[in-house]
Design a protein around this nucleic acid. Sequence first.
DNA 1: ATACTATGAATATCAAAGATAGTCAAAAAT
DNA 2: ATTTTTGACTATCTTTGATATTCATAGTAT
Lengths: 158, 158
Amino acid sequence: MRPLTDSIEAFIKSLLDEGQEQVDVQRNELAQYFRCAPSQITYVLSTRFTPDHGYVIESRRGGGGYIRIVRLRESPGSNLLYLINKRIGEAISRQDCDAIISQLNENDVITDNEAGLMRAAISGDAINLPVAFKDALRAGVLRAMLLQLAGRIKGEDE
Amino acid sequence: MRPLTDSIEAFIKSLLDEGQEQVDVQRNELAQYFRCAPSQITYVLSTRFTPDHGYVIESRRGGGGYIRIVRLRESPGSNLLYLINKRIGEAISRQDCDAIISQLNENDVITDNEAGLMRAAISGDAINLPVAFKDALRAGVLRAMLLQLAGRIKGEDE
DNA sequence: ATACTATGAATATCAAAGATAGTCAAAAAT
DNA sequence: ATTTTTGACTATCTTTGATATTCATAGTAT
């Protein structure tokens, strides 16, 4: 018999195939539907809906809580998924970050102002830490921002 | 189902969107309208209408009592300086950051997309560090981004 | 009139209960 | 071995209710 993980994965993908870039689900509801432990849902999401696979997850707890699955899109000339999954590793230098940001800016993936914000975020002037450590933190910040870019919904701003 | 908090928040904001800088509401009346406990209103106000969010609350008890919600519309410049020099200290929580970013967004200092980028930058999901340490790093990242905002020159973006 | 008190009408506070989702390690299945 | 599945425990957010506090007004005594 096909394992539950596969069914759950397929089910979520079918939801996303209805043209939407994202779906909200309730963990308990889904678990009930598949008659499994709620943590099973978490397991599927964390093994099949990672940035590697082209997805990001957001969630909210408490009453009215939900899990939102966002399918990342590849905007022209951006290479966002490559940057997120391959180019940035565990650590990245400031210069390399700058280069990436400039390239995104030149390809009109981000505005001048956004590029400025991103450079500020990865500058890390203030912190007095070993370079290796800084580079690791910078990698995290840059990756998070690129994930946000990849998750943007078309025409969301203005 | 959308939690009540969100509806109440939206309702209050819609009242403020009618051009007024402030609204007076009666807590019991609002609670009746939403069929919830009066303290629910208090909860919404204290979690979504704080000074960080750009609001202040005044109230009076007793007969004819009311709750006044005032939206602060400070000049973006001075507000930024305050945030940079006073509000952010050595450390800041994620929640507080979120509130500040929302406020900048609502006051049109930053676009929706920029708000998204900033939230991503301060999220620090990936790194596994003691909370106190994270909060200190976050303060640095947020401050750097606010400085960038402060330094924006009119007409810099196309 | 003036001061004091009682009453009713609001809001504030705070802790507990409810509703979600996350984590992690162990058990089960493949 | 690796992947799946479960369950106990934790974290976070919402909702409620009991109790305390504050204010306005009316009444009462002097």
